[in-house]
């Protein structure tokens, strides 16, 4: 029995549980910095899941952009907007109840949708998924440059992504400029004097 441990599944359990636990922790914790930390762990575990799914490049991207970039940005925001060392804004109990209930409903919905299709349940037993290799990034790059894949088994489903790629590039530029404009230093108004803040 011991010899049949499926390491792929094992790692999935490891990373999936990490992701789930820490995403719940994000919801439950009150401190915004701890939230960010748990989020990091959650997203890191997600990156691990990406590796398990054979999307190594996406996983690395996730680490680089989310964990390395976006979250650092977020922490910056936290530090810039925190007045005391640890700011808690208490949520009322009623909101917790309503939010939790709605969330649970949604979760139920999504879970039953996830396990509904037999085909999605995974490969038939005995197929060794532990050898799942990450696809080389070459194909991703080529597809991004607009060359449709000639993967014979999925003709018609795959196409080039040059236009979205370009749109996203321009979008990023716009965002860069826009956020630089929005966040540039302005005269800071005092909170105690609402008459000044028009």
């Amino acid at each position: 029995m011991d010899g049949h441990i499926n390491w792929h599944s094992f790692y999935f359990l490891l990373f999936g549980l990490t992701a789930c636990v820490f995403s719940v922790a994000v919801v439950l914790t009150g401190s915004i910095v701890r939230m960010a930390f748990y989020l990091t762990l959650c997203l890191g575990a997600t990156a691990g899941l990406f590796f398990l799914a054979g999307a190594g490049f996406v996983g690395a991207m996730q680490l680089l952009i989310y964990v390395g970039g976006t979250l650092v940005l977020l922490i910056f925001g936290v530090m810039l907007t925190a007045q005391g060392p640890f700011v808690n804004m208490k949520t009322r109990a009623g909101e917790w109840v309503i939010g939790g209930a709605a969330g649970l409903m949604l979760l139920g919905l999504l879970l039953q949708a996830a396990f509904r299709v037999e085909e999605w349940r995974g490969p038939p037993e005995g197929v060794a998924t532990a050898t799942a290799e990450n696809a080389p990034p070459g194909e991703i790059g080529i597809r991004m440059l607009g060359k449709p894949g000639d993967n014979g088994k999925a003709v018609g489903k795959e196409s080039g992504y040059l236009l979205p790629f370009e749109i996203v590039s321009v979008h990023l530029l716009v965002v860069l400029i826009g956020s630089a404009y929005l966040a540039r230093t302005k005269r800071r108004r005092r909170a105690s004097d609402p008459a000044e803040s028009t």
Binding site: M1, H4, I5, N6, H8, S9, F10, F12, L13, G16, A19, C20, S23, V24, V26, V27, C42, T46, L49, A53, T91, E95, W96, I98, G99, G100, A102, G103, L104, L106, L107, L110, L111, A113, A114, F115, V117, W120, R121, G122, P123, E125, V127, T129
Partner: peptide, 27 residues
């Protein structure tokens, strides 16, 4: 531990994260 996992399992993890995010936004 012994059976291969499938897309559904990933989706379940995704669903948990999604719902946590939604609840996070709501609360």
């Amino acid at each position: 531990l012994t059976d291969p996992v499938g897309a559904s399992h990933f989706m379940a993890v995704g669903a948990v994260m999604f719902v946590c995010g939604v609840v996070c936004m709501a609360t």
